[in-house]
Amino acid sequence: MPQILVEALAKTYRVAERAPGLTGALRGLVRRRWRPVHALADVSFSLEAGELLAFIGPNGAGKSTTVKILSGILRPTSGRVEVDGLVPYEDRVRHVARIGVVFGQRSQLWWDLPVIDGFDLLADIYRVGPERYRRRRDELVAMLRLEPLLDQPVRQLSLGQRMRAEFAAALLHDPTILFLDEPTIGLDAPSKLAVRDFVRQLNREQGVTVLLTTHDMHDVEALAERVIVIGQGRLLTDGPFESLRTSVLAERRLHIDFAGPAPALEMPGVTVRARSERSLELAFDPAEIPVAKLIAAVAAQHAVEDIHVDEPAIEEVIARFYDLHDAGEA
């Protein structure tokens, strides 16, 4: 029995439709027209305890809606959801006591209270016993290096500091599942690394099941063995990140600097992506032309000064994948 089970999940919002301008506003007073927006059309997947799954997709794809339904905030229009044997939105109170949630764009700590007071308050709200609370809090404070921040009001923290405090806040009651909605958004590089390290540690060492949504492909690469891509409310793929990368883009790039002016190169299966006076960037599929063969062919005809092969950036892979499925935001 998987820990999280999602079947044919759909969520439709009603959006008031209004003609532009004053006349439109006036007409809206008399008769309002509603337009259905399908945030989720038909999403199914399951997750075993201890897994780490990343949800990616363009803005408006339905990632956050999924997280909000799984965490019990929203009620789906149709479909079936079970988390640890509970239906989140039917059995909300029991369900939310077992999960932790971090929204990257919102704060669950009290703006005007020192961090430690917020933690105390959450311990009261989740009815965590004093002994257990002290142990858990000290553990999280050490893992997230929060000691120097504890007596500062939350409003004085930097975003990176606040995010670390938010993680501790979400985990004080020892949840077995952690939902993260864009946890690294807006963070600088060291803070992102700290968040990733922490999430990895939590998942590997403490066995916490993690479901995260993100736009940062480095998050995915660093953390997730499994990735679900969703676009326009539909599930596009579900599988290991590596297979997504190879299935979408086998393409490699060859960068060549020439001793003289760059030649007009024409070979079957090779396209010129960029050129400057003395250099070329070629794109090719290694299944069609092996790298060695291509390099040998170029070097045989021209004086080559420098040469290297790389692969497209992950962002590019994903953008191309969205294009392929026509999944970009309408």
């Binding site: 019990g72 905030i73 909300r92 109170v93 029991r94 939310v96 006591a97 929204f103 709200i125």
Partner: peptide
């Protein structure tokens, strides 16, 4: 949203 996440 966070209020809804409290087991209360």
């Amino acid at each position: 949203g966070y209020d809804r996440l409290r087991p209360l």
